[in-house]
Amino acid sequence: MIADVRSPDDADALVTRVAGGDEHALGVLYDRWSPLVFSVCVHILGDDDEAEEAVEETFWQAWRQAERYDVTRGAVATWLTTIARSRALDRLRASRRRQEETMSHLSETKRAAVDATTRRGDDPARSAEVAERRVLVRQALLALPLEQREVLELAYFRGLSQTEIAEHTGQPLGTVKTRVRLAMEKLRDRLGILRERDA
């Protein structure tokens, strides 16, 4: 992991305090990271109300599982956004079970695959390190071929299985699998993760 994405020591200390049952620390954690977590949730769910619920569930899980946080495995931001993605996808999948996905949503999804890497705005996250890292990740994604970027978007933010991606893109399953693998490996290399870890 690259140094600039490492959470500051105080962020790790906050999680330790949360693990010890310190509600104030959870409040500080929430104030610092909820804008980022909301961005992730609303991007996945496409609905502010649903995203709001997912944000609450994310920090609730963080409260309940803070003792499992492993500082050696990633920054606080990625720990929280990993939880956020899971909670948001749970809601998305539950929603899908209730309602057939519409073609209009699929076309939005395709646009979102591009938007995710090109849109800029005021960064709601207070952490400058994470703001910089967000730019880096977007740039790394933007450097991928469009079809690889699309499978990552569909898999990561829409929670589609490889089979579902194949159906929606009209590509053979084997092609989708290859794109997922290539996209992830290229992204990892562009983010310098392998080099850092191998060093």
Partner: peptide
């Protein structure tokens, strides 16, 4: 880290 690519 992919989550960090979510639009603001």
């Amino acid at each position: 880290e992919l989550a960090l690519a979510a639009p603001d």
